[in-house]
Write a protein that binds this DNA or RNA. Structure first.
Length: 403
RNA sequence: GUGAGAUUAGCUCAGUUGGUUAGAGCACUGGUUUGUGGUACCGGGGGUCGCGGGUUCGAGCCCCGUAUCUCACCCCA
């Protein structure tokens, strides 16, 4: 038997219902915020991700489905969505067009990782990206959107917030931090020593207890922001307070991808295992420029759909549509015709086999039909059809032409 | 890439110290005087016990290897 590849799952039945339920709600919210759908390729040039996500990240360093195609192009399956949307934004010259451009997308992402709870090799994200707005109100709006989506789904969360500084204050802070960490270099873990070279800020979210103890007195990003970043950050907190969105400041929250600056946020759930980030995002004002566009402020977030699906409780489903069954062999053709007619407007389930009343009604119950019709020689002769409402057990007889 | 646990029917799982023909519940399918009520009762089909070696008179059970799944590390959504 041929089986699906490791970490690549089929979505069907109950899962598919939850999946589409989420997509519909998230799409509605995004549209209410004035965002437009964008569909971008699953396959892109490898260079796109190297330049945006960053070679220091694990995603690019070891998790990409990368290969040389038949035209000898170095390509890979997208490991995340933002890079592709920015690429499209620049390619369509929307950076030169000016103005505000707001997009949302959803689809498969691919990362070659060891699967576990809440982590697959092919997984789905719902994301939004906003271009051309440098106001911190847009940062708050992003967070409100995620909050609205989660609220509509009935999902509880914790929101963690940080500011990563900008081109002005981040490098200064980084030097300070490197200096601090180098002083205790002998006692930190091997990973942190590597991070000193590749991406020093990442030492802050090291999971090693010993490292964390040493870093307790490290300079905090949040105390080293320049006045513009500082103002934005306090305004952001202010907006969230005014709109009753709870958050906690996590000075060690460092997004894993290189392109973030200023606002960074993460939505966390306690109920889905160790992979507890259900949504993450932030500002990336320099990324458009990195990808050869005109400098354009931008911000976005992504939601991990599979992780959310574990938390979604579906509303109760009510009975829906018709079930039509045949009592006699010669009635089957009529059942098919009636179903064909009714299917122009309603869901109809039929059985091609003759069964007794009891078995038919059992089937109707099983497929959760609302109306139950039975066709036999009586109906063929009379031209009538009896429609029984399985919720309230009331029967109505009408002409077949009126069905 | 590293570690731990698991794998028996479509699903959830029993299976004694290694001993006849591997079980249950649910699901599927058929029936219970064949056109009026869903829950009841009776029957039926369905298994290369993940795969490959080994030990043994004999392996679902013990040993080795391997694949896959799950969880965790790492990292991230």
């Amino acid at each position: 038997m041929i089986k699906s590849l490791r970490g690549m799952n089929d979505i069907l039945n109950e899962d598919y219902k939850r999946f589409t339920y989420f997509i519909n709600i998230a799409t509605n919210v995004a549209q209410r915020y004035g965002f437009h759908f964008i569909e971008i390729p699953l396959l892109e040039e490898t260079a796109l991700f190297k330049r945006s996500v960053g070679e220091s990240s694990d995603i690019v360093g070891k998790e990409m489905y990368q290969f040389i195609d038949k035209g000898k192009n170095d390509v890979c399956l997208r490991p995340e969505g933002t890079a592709g949307v920015v690429r499209a934004f620049v390619q369509k010259k929307l950076d030169k067009a000016g103005g505000i451009h707001r997009f949302f997308y959803h689809g498969s992402m691919f990362r070659y990782e060891r699967p576990q709870k809440g982590r697959l090799r092919q997984f789905h994200q719902f994301g939004v990206e906003s271009f051309g707005v440098d106001s911190v109100y847009e940062d708050a709006t992003m967070i409100m959107m995620v909050s609205d989506i989660l609220k509509e789904l009935g999902i509880g969360y914790k929101l963690q917030l940080n500011s990563l500084g900008d081109n002005n204050c981040m490098p200064t802070y980084r030097n300070k931090l490197v200096k601090f960490v180098k002083e205790c270099e002998d006692d930190i873990c091997d990973d942190c020593i590597k991070r000193l070279d590749t991406n020093p800020i990442r030492v802050l979210d090291c999971k090693n207890d010993k490292c964390q103890t040493l870093y307790a007195t490290a300079p905090k990003l949040i105390n080293n922001l320049c006045s513009s970043c500082e103002n934005d950050f306090s305004k952001l907190k202010n907006i969230l307070d005014n709109n009753e969105i709870k958050y906690e400041i996590d000075t060690n929250l460092v997004r894993g991808l290189d392109y973030y600056s200023k606002t960074a946020f993460e939505f966390i759930s306690d109920n889905i295992g160790s992979q507890n980030a259900i949504a993450g995002g932030g500002r990336y004002d320099r990324l458009v420029e990195y990808l050869d566009g005109r400098p354009t402020p931008a911000i976005g977030f992504a939601i991990g759909i599979q992780r959310l699906m574990e938390l979604i409780v579906m509303p109760e489903t009510s009975r829906d549509g018709y079930y039509i069954g045949a009592m006699d062999e010669e009635a089957i053709d009529l059942v098919v015709s009636l179903a064909h007619k009714k299917r122009k407007t309603d869901k109809v389930v039929i059985d091609y086999k003759v069964k007794n009343f009891k078995n038919h009604i059992k089937n109707a119950d099983k497929v959760n039909a609302k109306y139950f019709c039975i066709i036999g020689t009586n109906e063929i002769q009379s031209g009538n059809i009896i429609i029984k409402n399985l919720d309230n057990k009331i029967e109505k007889t009408i002409k077949q032409e009126e069905f």
